[in-house]
């Protein structure tokens, strides 16, 4: 009896193995097209794991903070001197900014430019630094319940981190601007030349589709252009790190190794998108 069933068992096992291999390939192809079912599965697993990851990530963050504190203590004096100098500089900038803000408001009023409503921010903590060798993404502890939706911009005080790629109920995945799937419409701040920031999983994403006539030099600031409507315009992203024959590389302002707290910009719900003909007459 056992002798008879053994070959059948092997056959069944082989068939099951083959079936699994085929389903893996089918899933990969389905996932490429952003199938709803695959999305649901991803966000479901994310929500399920988020509470555990939140607990596990706290001690790691605490240890990292403790090390950082010791480093800070060592550099306390020099840091204080640096901050005093920076503060003096920033106070001067503040008065300039106030004057420009007032002037800008007046000019906007004169030109009937529709007022940009302030964005709403959702603050979240990074609870997992996932991805491995092929993906650059992090998981944060805010989701649809807090108003996070797919496509929103994610930033720190320094600059743009990336965009919300999947939004679960309690958690969301953020695709970093360095990820190979990241494409972002950007502007060179000084010359207003348009380009697309293309990630390649490396530390320094590339500027693509930059007009040949555009002048670029190392140190130029890169900001979001706001094209596409999902992102507010003018968010700082990075500075040009190198310009050579192979292309222009951008060094992000955000230190992705130290991501802890991020702000998710709720831009769409803050700015209703009426057609431009409706807005114009209402403004006086």
């Amino acid at each position: 009896m056992a002798r008879l069933t053994a070959p059948i068992k092997v056959l069944v096992q082989r068939f099951a193995f083959l079936l699994l291999v085929v389903s893996a390939f089918v899933l990969m192809l389905l996932g490429k097209g952003e199938a709803l079912l695959v999305d649901r599965f991803r966000t479901g697993v994310l929500d399920f794991a988020a509470p555990v990851m939140e607990i596990v990530s706290q001690p790691a963050a605490a240890v990292a903070n403790a090390i950082e504190n010791v480093k800070d203590l060592i550099h306390l004096r020099s840091e204080n001197a640096r901050l005093k100098a920076e503060n003096a500089r920033l106070v001067a900038w503040q008065s300039t900014a106030r004057r420009l803000q007032a002037e800008n408001a007046t000019l906007r009023g004169l030109m009937h430019v529709p007022v940009e409503l302030p964005e709403r921010f959702i603050t979240a903590r990074v609870i997992a630094d996932s991805g491995g060798a092929f993906v650059r993404s992090v998981i944060v502890n805010a989701g649809r319940r807090q108003g996070v939706t797919k496509g929103q911009a994610v930033m720190t005080a320094d600059g743009l981190v990336g965009r919300v790629f999947e939004a679960g109920f309690y958690s969301a995945r953020v695709l970093l601007i360095t990820d190979i799937n990241s494409r972002l419409p950007v502007l060179l701040e000084a010359t207003r030349a348009r380009a697309i920031l293309v990630g390649d999983n490396g530390e320094k994403p590339k500027l693509a589709f930059l007009a040949a006539s555009a002048e670029v030099s190392v140190g130029d600031r890169i900001i979001t252009s706001g094209q596409g409507g999902m992102f507010p315009a003018g968010l700082p992203i990075g500075v040009v790190a190198s310009v050579d024959g192979t292309g222009v590389r951008v060094s992000p302002l955000v230190d992705f190794d130290r991501l802890e707290m991020v702000r998710i910009v709720d831009f769409e719900s803050a700015v209703p998108l009426p057609s431009s003909t409706e807005v114009a007459p209402r403004k006086k």
């Binding site: 893996a24 899933l27 990969m28 991805g131 491995g132 993906v135």
Partner: peptide, 11 residues
Amino acid sequence: ALMGTPIGLNA
């Protein structure tokens, strides 16, 4: 699902 890799890859 957790890593954000293409679904089915690690499987």
